[in-house]
């Protein structure tokens, strides 16, 4: 199986606090990889290092390498903006741009990167909205504000916005934590459908969600990677006692 992202001996800090400690982990192409662990275990920080978003917070630093298709994204010559185009991200709370219409929200990335040759903005927006199953719901009101949608729709709009710039990897930082069960289900279905085209890394505090959507699962504790493997193995046959404690709910 192809390795899309290879994290090598990676650490990350906020000021003096080390949030990620010497993590090494391969992320396989066209698979869903879930990162689980108790709050404060560094899983969100870790995922934010995969598109170099951690460094936009003042006082932070990192050490180690992250190879995207063999190229170290932390290399001095690499432009973080270009990495962020190739590695898209969806956040905990839906964050559409409130002053933009639904259409403009999806097209926001295109406005900075330009259109792929031979396409129009209309085509790309329609394709992206169809991929997230939102097209039928919003086709007749594309000019309405992005924040006029429900929470679940907003989150799918944000996914469409991320997909419109054609990333290779999609990072999802607890994308359902602010949503109701029905919207959560829709997003989970969506994730399963998207993995053919995209490599997906999802952070979740919900173990069941990881079990439902992920092919691979990594368990983090106190900034360290404790265990990583095929999801079913992790949940049915953990090798580490701490992993077992966590998934059986005897933990924190």
């Amino acid at each position: 199986m192809d390795t899309r992202l290879l994290v090598e001996d990676f650490s990350a800090w906020y000021g003096q606090t080390q949030a990620v400690k010497n993590v090494t982990l391969p992320v396989y192409a066209s698979q869903v990889t879930a990162i689980i662990g108790p709050s404060g275990c560094g899983k969100s920080t870790f995922i934010r290092c995969l598109n170099r978003l951690h460094e936009v917070i003042p006082g932070t630093r990192t050490r180690g390498r992250v190879l995207l298709d063999g190229q170290n994204i932390y290399d001095d010559k690499v432009d973080p903006a270009e990495i962020r185009r190739r590695v898209g991200m969806v956040f905990q709370k839906p964050n559409p741009f409130p002053t933009m219409s639904i259409f403009d929200n999806v097209a926001a990335g295109l406005r900075v990167h330009g259109l792929p040759p031979g396409t129009t903005a209309e085509e790309v927006v329609e394709k992206s909205l169809k991929m997230v199953g939102l097209w039928d719901e919003v086709a007749d009101r594309l000019q309405d504000s992005g924040v006029s949608l429900s929470g679940g729709q907003q989150q799918r709009l944000c996914i469409a916005r991320a997909l419109a710039v054609e990333p290779e990897v999609l990072l999802m930082d607890e994308p359902c934590s602010a949503l109701d069960p029905v919207s959560t289900l829709k997003i989970e279905e969506l994730i399963k459908g998207l993995k053919e085209k995209y490599t997906i890394v999802i952070v979740t505090h919900n173990m069941h969600q990881a079990a439902r959507v992920a092919d691979y699962t990594a368990f983090f504790l106190n900034g360290q990677l404790i265990e990583y493997g095929v999801t079913s193995d992790i949940f049915t046959n953990p090798r580490d006692q701490r992993t077992e404690d966590y998934i059986t709910g005897r933990f924190g």
Partner: peptide
């Protein structure tokens, strides 16, 4: 979250 949304698109 607004800044990060835009940065994450590669802006």
């Amino acid at each position: 979250s607004q800044r990060e949304a835009m940065l994450a698109l590669g802006a």
